[in-house]
Structure formats: structure tokens, C-alpha cells
Design a protein around this nucleic acid. Structure first.
Lengths: 176, 176
DNA sequence: CTGATTGCAAACACTTTGCAGCAGA
DNA sequence: TCTGCTGCAAAGTGTTTGCAATCAG
């Protein structure tokens, strides 16, 4: 049970068109191929699989989730390749490393999607995403004051969600 | 050279009044003692030393810096105790874990100081701190829309500083 | 006195890296 | 064919934890 039988057809087609309803794969893949080509890097089935898996994700995800998603889909995906590909996807502007916590990093697809910022409940761990145009304006305003050219940002608000407020009667938790 | 002779007077007085010009130690220490007492924890020389070392820091610092500062000051400071104490200081509202990068976490003293947010140059690594009242207002506004009670936040803007713009002629770098 | 704290070293968890064989272009 | 890529396992790194001795209150 623990030694899941090795899937032999590891280099099979990675996802049928029908399964890909989450987000248009083709345009993003084309973008990725263009990036890879420009960098003299190669487009491989593994990279395609990993991009595909990332595009299926809604909102935040962790590298480890991609690994297990790919494994569940019957591909053997080496951790190393996932991590290496995440970096390429980030450089290609397809993913964003949204933030880190003590342990790990979290990614989000940004190509063709709206970027988000996050409310994180310190009581429940729940993560709420939001988008604020005002925030973006304020960000750019602040940058201008410092002669700084913004490329991206990370913004997380830590606090108590409505549910968190109830259950966090006593324990204030570590706010930041 | 590598085996620095063990300092015997490890439980000596940790800092003279004269050395503490950076920030008032006493009031913050009193705050810490109150917190510890309330939690039925003990005030130890190690904790005092670590608080003292943290208060000397201007802006951001990493746990490892405290370890080496303490070592340099002639105290043997175990990594474990530093980490444990950083957590207490955070719970006491004296420090804030400002953000994480791939590897480590960064702290800042907040007791009696203004909290900051950061501009991080992706080309030079330079960190510029700023404070924006507007940002705080916007943060609270966003929270209100979600019935969320803000406790703190982490905000970092990634981009190019004036110097970074020059030297980053070609390499865009990994923006986020 | 008694329970909390310390230092040490081992344990942890995520990420990166070296290498030999494999495979895009 | 010529590079670059993959998987594996080992190495790295910041942080946490178990434990016996020690100390604060």
C-alpha cells in the first residue's frame, strides 16, 4: 500500500484537453515556450506537466502540492524538477512567489489572472484573498517618493477572521 | 582561532548602562518582565541579554545576528535560547517578525518605535524602510470590508532602487 | 523546593545541488 | 550530436525539540 506501483508510462501525454477547464493552457504554455526558447532552455514533458498542474490550482499553492498532484495523476515528478521549474515559471512571469512562512513558500499563477493580496487569520489559519486597486496606487505613490521602481509586492494582513474572533476567546496568538 | 576560549563569567552582568544609548532599555524590559510574570515564565539573565541585544539593533535583524552579537559581547548564547526568546518577545509585543525570505526570518523592534514597511531592491538587495499612515488606513478599510480584525501586516515592495536601476541594465532578476 | 530554562546535539522540513544517464532541437 | 534536463540521493540551512543539568522565584 505504501509502495505505490511505479507507473511505467511516465512520459505519456500529461493532460487531455477535456481535463483542462480551469484556465486556458495553450496561451500560457506558448508564453512559457517563448520564454524558454529565448533563454536557450528546452521545453520538456516534465515542464509542461508542471505548468499544467500549476494552472489547475486556484489561488495559493505550495510546491509540495504540485508534487503530490502530479504523483496522483500518475506521473512521477521529482521534487527537484518541480522546484527548478517553479523558478523558471517565475522568471517567465507566469507564477509569483506570493510569500513565505517559517517553513515554505507559496505560489500563485499570475499570467492572465488578477494578482491578489491576503488576509490571514491567526486563529484559524484561513487565508482570504482580495484585490485592491487603491493599494496598487498607494504602492506606486510610495515608490515614487523614493525613486523606486516597483515590480511587485507582497502584502499580507494578519488578524482575526469573523470565525477566528469567536474561537479565539482567550488566546491572542502570535500576531505577526 | 576557531575554538574561541570559553568565557567563564557567562552569567556576568550583561550590559552597562553606559552602553545602552540606543533605546531605553528599562521600560521595555519592564514590559517584558510583566509579560513573563503574567505567563508564569521566568526572567533570566539570558532573556535579558537577548532583549538587550535586540534593542541595540536598528531596523531589521536576523536571529543569527543576535547570536553572533551576543557571542562577540562575551556571552555564550545558545541558538536555541535565542530562538525561544524571540518568540516570547514577539508574543510580548516587543518584536515583530517582519518577513521571511527563502531562508530565514527577519525581526524588528516595535515596542516604542514606529512600525515600518519595506522597499526591497531586487538588483542590489538594499532594503529601504518607510512608514505610511495612508497604508494603515487602507489596510483597516480593507479589513472592515471583510469583517476582519487586523492585528498586524507584512508589506514589502519589490523593485529597483535608483542605484539598482543603473546596474540592472540587462538582468531583470526574479521580481517576486 | 519545584517547575521553568538552558545548552547541546539531534531532529526536522523545505530547498538546492552533484552526478550519471537521457533526450530535446 | 550537443547541450541541457531529469531523477536520485546527499548536502544545505534555518529552526525546533528532547533531555539532563541548572536556576529563578
Amino acid at each position: 500500500m505504501s509502495e505505490q506501483p511505479r507507473v511505467l508510462a511516465s512520459r505519456q501525454k500529461f493532460a487531455t484537453e477535456a481535463q483542462r477547464q480551469v484556465l486556458p493552457y495553450e496561451p500560457v504554455c506558448a508564453l512559457f515556450r517563448r520564454y524558454l526558447h529565448g533563454q536557450k532552455l528546452k521545453f520538456t514533458p516534465e515542464r509542461a506537466m508542471i505548468l499544467d498542474a500549476a494552472l489547475r490550482k486556484q489561488g495559493l499553492f505550495e510546491p509540495e502540492q504540485l508534487v503530490s498532484d502530479l504523483k496522483a495523476a500518475g506521473h512521477r515528478a521529482s521534487r527537484a524538477t518541480v522546484y527548478r521549474t517553479l523558478n523558471h515559471l517565475q522568471d517567465a512571469g507566469i507564477l509569483k512567489q506570493v510569500f513565505f512562512d517559517n517553513k515554505q513558500s507559496y505560489y500563485e499563477v499570475i499570467a492572465g489572472r488578477q494578482v491578489h493580496d491576503y488576509l490571514i487569520c491567526v486563529a484559524t489559519g484561513k487565508v482570504i484573498e482580495f484585490h485592491s486597486e487603491k493599494l496598487r496606487q498607494l504602492r506606486d505613490e510610495i515608490c515614487q517618493q523614493h525613486g523606486f521602481e516597483p515590480l511587485s509586492h507582497r502584502f499580507q494582513i494578519l488578524g482575526l477572521s469573523p470565525e477566528g474572533k469567536k474561537q479565539a476567546g482567550q488566546r491572542p496568538g502570535r500576531a505577526s
